[in-house]
Structure formats: C-alpha cells, structure tokens
C-alpha cells in the first residue's frame, strides 16, 4: 500500500512537471506554429542563473543565495528576458516561414544557447543546492512518507494551471490570445496586435520555464549545459500525444507521459528497467498509430496564412 501511494504521488509529480513543459511548448505553438526546441535550454539558463558566471569547478551561488522570494523572481525574470530576446532577435524574423523552418531555427537557437553556457561556465557539471528543506521527506500517514518536493511540484503546477485558465478566460488579453491561437489572421484583422500576442506567449512560456528550472534544479542539485535536452524531448512528445495546438492536450499529454514512465519504472523487473524510456516511446508510437491527431482534438490544427 505504501508503495502504491508513493508511486501515485511520484507519477503525479512527474506528470505535473511534463505537463508544465508541454504547456510552455504548446503556448508558443498555438499562436505561432513554432515548436520551440530551445525551450529546454530556457530551463537550463534558469538553472545557471543561480550561480556566479565562471568556469570554476566549484560553483559559487549568486542568485541562488538570495532570499527565496527574490530568488524566484530573479530567475523567472531572467528566463522571461531570454525568451523575449529570442523572439525579438530570432523568431520574429522567421515567423512567416513554414513551421519546419521555425523548428530548425529553434534547434539552432538551442545549440547556440548551450554553447554560450559552455563558454561561460565550462562543461563540467556543477553542484547547486537550493531549497534543501524541500528534498526532505514528509510523513502523510503511518509509514507512508513522500518527498516534500513532489508535493510542491504538484501544487505549483495546479496553481499555475488555474492561474493560466483564469488569465485566458477572464482577461481581455487572455481572450485575445485564445482568438489569435485559433485564427491568427482574423484576430489581426479585428485589430488584435499580433506582435504583442506572440510576445505575451513568449513571456508565459518563459515564466513556466523559469519555475521549472527551479523545480528541476532543486530535484537534481546539478547543473550541466545540456540538461535541458533530454527533458525537452519528453515535453515535445507530451505535446504531440496531447494534440499539437491544444493547451488542454498539452497538459493531458504531459500527465500521460509522466504517469506511464513512473508506472513502468515501478512495475518493470530490474533487468528491463533500463529500457524504460524505450518502452515509453514505444507506447507513444502505438498511441499515435491509433490517434495520429493526438488525444485532444483542436479546431486550429490547420496552418495559418
């Protein structure tokens, strides 16, 4: 029984993390038809922002030593600035190109960001310890204890999801963003400013990436210049499974991928466990064979003019 509860919490927490990642990608895809493979590197930048820029072997905390509130604000702000810069310096100039072109540009941006980090911080992994109190265990009933951080990830995710839903439904710009996501050209013809809607999507995407950077680094305690790449792959898969262009789909896809990975890790016998990711991808292929449009259907799957 303990094991089951622990597995469930762990699955939900993984799922939440992937859902946030998929949402960051889905937001940009919905208004711009951009699959942003640099999203994982935004998270990496959020992590490296915690320490003093230097290639020294032992990392010195900079923002990582701030008061927790200030720490969160600084990291999130830095990632938002990086996301906005990547729009104005890079994506804005290719936004009328095909989705394939934009995707390749995002790969290029991702590599560039990774190499900038490599140049400044060096290639060696660096240990960083933030929010150490969160990595402890908490007892939720007799003999069942789970990591506090897992509960925090789930809670943070749901707070962000609810805030995002309220923003998209209740605010004027939120409604404009939904309209632009469905029919970008029509929204512009009604006077919705296309550039600010896209910039807003980058801000939201950066906000999510910044928070994820904090959660991720708290969990792993290590910074490497390529740490965004493997998780980005899972976010992308989650977005595809959920159905490109649907934010609900991104969340559903994120949870699906997270839960499947954790459950496989729990039930697979030890020898096969190392092939877990391969099995996750196999399941993805099977899902997509049955539902190539993804789990959640969208009206706006068509291309924009």
């Amino acid at each position: 029984m303990d094991y089951i509860i622990q597995t469930v919490i762990s699955a939900l927490s993984f799922g939440s993390f992937y859902a946030l990642g998929a949402l960051g990608i889905g937001l940009l895809f919905s208004v711009l038809r951009l699959i942003n493979f640099a999203h994982g590197d935004f998270i990496t930048i959020g992590g490296f922002a915690l320490i003093v820029p230097s290639s020294a072997v032992v990392a010195t905390v900079l923002i990582g030593g701030f008061h927790p509130v200030l720490l969160v604000i600084c990291v999130v702000a830095i990632v938002i600035i990086v996301a906005l810069l990547s729009y104005f310096l890079v994506f804005q100039h290719v936004q009328n190109s095909s989705p394939a072109t934009m995707m390749i540009v995002s790969f290029a941006l991702g590599y560039t960001l990774q190499n900038i980090i490599l140049m400044i911080y060096g290639g060696r992994p660096k240990a960083v310890n933030i929010f150490p109190e969160l990595t402890g265990q908490v007892q939720i009933s007799d003999g069942v204890s789970v990591q506090i951080l897992q509960l925090v990830i789930i809670a943070v995710t749901w707070i962000l999801l609810i805030a995002l839903v309220l923003f998209l439904r209740r605010t004027k710009v939120g409604v404009q963003m939904r309209a632009a996501a469905e029919d970008f050209r029509m929204a512009r013809m009604l006077g919705v400013n296309g550039k600010s809607v896209i910039a807003l999507a980058f801000i939201l995407s950066g906000l999510l990436a910044g928070i994820m950077a904090l959660l991720f680094v708290t969990q792993t305690g290590v910074l490497t210049f390529r740490m965004g790449t493997p998780i980005m792959l899972f976010f992308f898969i989650a977005t595809v499974i959920g159905g490109m262009g649907s934010l609900v789909g991104a969340v559903v896809g994120g949870y699906a991928v997270g839960i499947v990975s954790v459950v496989l890790a729990a039930v697979l016998p030890g020898d096969i466990r190392i092939f877990r990711d391969a099995l996750v991808f196999l399941i993805v292929i099977i899902i997509l064979l049955g539902r190539p449009q993804g789990l959640v259907l969208t009206k706006s799957a068509k291309d924009r003019v």
Binding site: V175, A179, E182, M186, M189, N193, G194
Partner: peptide, 27 residues
C-alpha cells in the same frame, strides 16, 4: 499591418466567416 488597417477604420468580414469557434458569442 492588418491590425493597423483595422485601427485606421477598415473592418473586413472575410470569406468563410471565421468565427472563433472555441470562444463564446460574447467573447
């Protein structure tokens, strides 16, 4: 840009109507 033209005072109802299907009528 299309939005600047709209601001100038030209509003177009394009072919095929283009309602935002996922938004409600008021939105």
């Amino acid at each position: 840009s299309p939005e600047a033209v709209a601001r100038a005072g030209i509003s177009q109802v394009p072919e095929g109507r283009h309602v935002f299907t996922t938004l409600n009528v008021e939105e």
